[in-house]
C-alpha cells in the first residue's frame, strides 16, 4: 500500500451479527482509476461499499484514505474524509422532501461558506452537466428513474469529491440510459480526474469503463481475482472468473 493511494483496504472482514459476509479483502485503488467491484448477488459488494463509506464498521481490518485509517480516526477526521467522497446509491436516494436544486445545494450549504447566488450557479452547472437543466424545481417523485440517478450523480458531485462511489449504476435503467451513465463516468474520470469505484455486475458496463476490477465470490466470501477485465478474461484459468465474465453460467443445469 502506498501512502498516496486514495483508498486501500487491508484484511477487511465484514459481518452482520454472526453472519460472515466477506473476509480478508485486500486491494488498493490508484488515483484517477475506475475500479470495479464485480460479483453476483449476495457476494457482499454493497456491504463492502458500506464499509468504505462509513456505514458498516468492519469486524477486522482497515480502510485507508490516503494512508489514514478511517475507522480508527476520530469523528472530525472521518467527517473530513467523507466530504471528499461522493456516493451514488442504487436507487438514487435523493431526499424526497426537497427539490433537485435543494438536494444538490444541501451539501454546499452545509460544508462551504458560499453565498446563495454562488450556490445556485453551482447547482445549475452540476444539473446541466448531467443533462437536467430546467428540472431545478422538480421533486424526485416527479421525474423518471434514469433522471433520478443522474440527479443523484449531480448531488454526489456537489462538493467535487476526489473519490466517487457508484452502487450498481445501471441497475433499473434501460440500456440507453445505462450507457449514457457509463459515458458520464468516463467523462468524469478524463476531465475531473476523479477516482471512481463502481459496484457492478453489468458486463457491458464493466468492459467499457473498468481500469481494474476485482471479483468477489459468494462461496469463498473474498476476492478471487483482480486485474483488468480483458486480461482476466484472456488469462485467468479460474472457471468462476470465466463463467462470470462470459456469462455462460446458467442457473439451469445442462442436459
Amino acid at each position: 500500500m502506498k501512502r498516496e493511494d486514495p483508498i486501500a483496504l487491508r484484511d477487511i472482514t465484514l459481518a452482520y451479527d454472526s453472519l460472515l459476509v466477506l473476509k480478508d479483502v485486500n486491494f488498493q485503488v490508484k488515483r484517477g482509476d475506475i475500479f470495479v467491484i464485480m460479483g453476483g448477488s449476495g457476494s457482499g459488494k454493497s456491504s463492502l461499499m458500506k464499509a468504505m463509506t462509513g456505514l458498516l464498521p468492519p469486524v477486522r481490518g482497515q480502510v485507508f484514505y490516503e494512508g489514514v485509517d478511517f475507522w480508527e480516526a476520530g469523528p472530525a477526521t472521518r467527517d473530513a474524509i467523507l466530504h471528499k467522497v461522493g456516493v451514488l446509491y442504487q436507487r438514487g436516494a435523493l431526499w424526497s422532501s426537497m427539490t433537485l436544486a435543494e438536494n444538490i445545494a444541501l451539501p454546499l450549504e452545509e460544508f462551504t461558506g458560499l453565498g446563495a447566488e454562488e450556490i445556485r450557479d453551482l447547482v445549475n452547472f452540476k444539473l446541466s452537466l448531467v443533462g437536467l437543466s430546467g428540472f431545478e424545481d422538480a421533486y424526485p417523485a416527479e421525474i423518471s428513474g434514469g433522471m433520478i440517478k443522474r440527479a443523484a450523480l449531480a448531488r454526489a458531485m456537489a462538493l467535487d469529491p476526489g473519490i466517487l462511489f457508484f452502487d450498481e449504476p445501471s441497475a433499473g435503467l434501460d440500456p440507453v440510459s445505462a450507457r449514457l451513465l457509463d459515458e458520464l463516468i468516463l467523462e468524469l474520470k478524463q476531465n475531473l480526474h476523479t477516482t471512481i469505484i463502481v459496484i457492478s455486475h453489468d458486463l457491458e458496463s464493466i468492459f467499457t469503463i473498468a481500469d481494474t476490477a476485482i471479483l468477489l465470490d459468494s462461496e469463498e466470501r473474498t476476492v478471487i481475482a483482480s486485474g483488468k477485465p480483458e486480461d482476466l478474461l484472456r488469462n485467468s484459468e479460474d472457471s468462476r472468473v470465466q463463467k462470470f465474465l462470459t456469462r455462460v453460467q446458467t442457473v439451469f443445469p445442462e442436459t
Binding site: T53, L55, V87, A93, L94, E110
Partner: peptide, 10 residues
C-alpha cells in the same frame, strides 16, 4: 437509503 446518503455526507 436517504438516511445513508445523509450519513455519508457526514
Amino acid at each position: 437509503e436517504e438516511i445513508d446518503a445523509l450519513r455519508t455526507l457526514g
